[in-house]
Structure formats: structure tokens, C-alpha cells
């Protein structure tokens, strides 16, 4: 894994990598990819991918409101709120 690939992955993952950690991290990720490359040896022609252990259809609830979330309880643990809104740095310039 080269530096450009690593930076692309960091962006996809919304993570920063310190410059002095790039080499070690790339080596660790390469080790994991080497491990998972063993999959390529498996003959999977015509095998249906299995996304989930429950083949049965999932039970669904009826589409009606049952309980209302208490906004103030959820926002009490938020890093920054104002007037019921979550605050983030400005995204739209004036």
C-alpha cells in the first residue's frame, strides 16, 4: 500500500494519519490484506453471496409511532446544542 492509497483510505474513513505513522500503518494494513488475500484461492464460482445469517424474512413492525424520543434527554449529552439544534462549524458561507 503506497502513500497515496493510504491517504485516500484515510479520507474515506474520515481519519487523519500523522506523517510519522504512515509507514508503520501501511505495513500493518498490508499484513491484514495479505491475510485476507487467502480468499482468492477459494473456488466460489456460482456461489450466492451470504450477507446475513438469517435467511428468513425479517419481522417488521407496523408503521405507526409508538414512543416519542425525548429530544432534551438526547441533546443533554451532545457536545454543542442551541435551541434544540446540534451545532457544527459553519458549512455555508454568507
Amino acid at each position: 500500500m503506497d502513500l497515496a492509497q493510504l491517504q485516500k483510505l484515510a479520507t474515506l474513513s474520515r481519519l487523519n494519519i500523522a506523517p510519522d505513522q504512515c509507514d508503520a500503518l501501511a505495513a500493518e494494513l498490508d499484513n491484514v490484506l495479505q491475510l485476507v488475500d487467502q480468499l482468492q484461492a477459494a473456488d466460489t464460482a456460482g456461489i450466492e453471496p451470504m450477507a446475513h445469517p438469517l435467511a428468513i424474512s425479517q419481522p417488521l413492525r407496523s408503521d405507526r409511532a409508538e414512543a416519542e424520543a425525548d429530544r432534551s434527554a438526547f441533546q443533554a449529552i451532545a457536545p454543542a446544542v442551541d435551541a434544540g439544534l446540534y451545532l457544527v462549524p459553519k458549512v455555508i458561507e454568507e
Binding site: 480468499l39 482468492q40 477459494a42 466460489t44 456461489i47 450466492e48 453471496p49 450477507a51
Partner: peptide
Amino acid sequence: AYYRKAQQVRQL
């Protein structure tokens, strides 16, 4: 190459 393949192996 990775995700779909892994799910096929999961089936096996």
C-alpha cells in the same frame, strides 16, 4: 474482489 468474495466464502 474482497467483500463479495468474502460473502461467497461465508456461504461455503
